[in-house]
């Protein structure tokens, strides 16, 4: 009986550690997402702040056609 109780306690500890590590992985995923998206937003921000008349931001298609 003692052995079964010990095994149950052991199983619960394994489950607990497993759950914590699994959620740690999920948290890493969320963190990775947030970091990459923040980086992408920062990269995009300078482009948006450039004046509309500058050659880089002007739509190239019609001018070339002209």
């Amino acid at each position: 009986m003692e052995n079964i109780w010990g095994a149950t306690q052991f199983a619960l500890i394994v489950y607990g550690i497993g759950a914590v590590v699994s959620f740690l992985v999920a948290w890493i995923i969320t963190l990775t997402f947030a970091a990459i998206r923040m980086h992408n937003r920062r990269n995009a921000a300078p482009d948006e702040s450039k004046p509309k008349g500058s050659p880089e931001s002007a739509p190239a298609g019609p001018k070339k056609a002209a």
Binding site: G18, A19, S22, F23, V25, A26, W27, T30
Partner: peptide
């Protein structure tokens, strides 16, 4: 990720 991992656990 959290929802999927919760189901998996």
């Amino acid at each position: 990720p959290f929802r999927s991992m919760f189901i998996a656990v």
